[in-house]
């Protein structure tokens, strides 16, 4: 446990609390956004990367969102972000979504204090460690990429209404799908990040990532098809891959 209270960034819905009434702890910074659902997942991870030890998202309790269901969008994003944080080796408790009814008697300050104590209780911030930074960067890039965002944006449509083929996807099935895709995208962007530093072989990547070389190769095949990665050179019998500029 470090001696200083953790630096916490709180993204707060414009409509949730009245600014004048809040007593905000010193270590917490409140940034007002139009709706808590407006928070780009990539932006949340970027905030961690920039040094925040905890991120709070404060919105309104369903069903009272000023934008109908912005708070539910935030819920979905946080669900995905927590998965990514686990993959990145960061405690998912560092990210918290709070949907608070304005009629509640508790003050925002109390929530903020509780959260910062929770974060404080976690072990020292691992945010300085290089591997975590690599992981977080990979996670951030994954959330700014097409596949995850499409899935996130479509979740409601797919699970509660129908897809283009008139099928409704059960929630568990969707979650399993999301798990797979989050994992795959995370690994791909980590590979992308690692090969950006220098060209690497499948074996080396498998070692760093801690997965089977065959799995790495499968990802690389996929990434080559998408134009994310290319063969750099062959050293002896080992092909080395290098990341391409995406977009």
């Amino acid at each position: 446990m470090s001696s200083n209270p953790p630096r916490i960034i709180c993204f707060m819905c414009n409509w949730a609390f009245c600014e004048e009434e809040m007593c905000i702890p010193y270590n917490v910074d409140v940034i007002r956004v139009m709706c808590v659902g407006r928070m780009d997942p990539a932006l949340v991870l970027e905030t961690f990367l920039k040094g925040a030890e905890g991120v709070m998202l404060v919105g309104c309790k369903p069903p009272d969102c000023h934008f109908v269901d912005g708070n539910l969008h935030a819920e979905r994003a946080v669900k995905m972000l927590k998965k990514l944080l686990v993959l990145a080796g960061l405690e998912p408790e560092r990210l918290k979504l709070m949907l608070i009814s304005p009629l509640e008697d508790r003050d925002f300050g109390q929530y903020a204090k509780e959260f910062s104590e929770e974060v404080w209780r976690l072990r020292d911030s691992p945010l300085k460690r290089e591997d975590i930074i690599i992981n977080l960067t990979a996670a951030k890039e994954a959330t700014s990429a097409f596949r995850l965002r499409v899935l996130l944006g479509r979740e409601e449509e797919l699970t509660e209404f129908m897809n283009a083929y008139g099928e409704k996807i059960p929630e568990e099935e969707f979650n399993a799908l999301l798990d797979d895709i989050v994992k795959a995208e995370f690994i791909r962007y980590k590979i992308h990040y690692l090969t950006r530093i220098k060209p690497r072989s499948v074996k080396e990547l498998a070692q760093i990532l801690g997965i089977k070389p065959s799995a790495v190769l499968r990802h690389i095949t996929n990434m080559r098809r998408k134009g994310m990665i290319a063969l750099d050179r062959v050293e002896g019998y080992t092909p080395l891959y290098k990341a391409l500029e995406v977009r």
Partner: peptide, 9 residues
Amino acid sequence: CGLCAARCP
């Protein structure tokens, strides 16, 4: 509200 900006793939 910016929800679209937060989700645009």
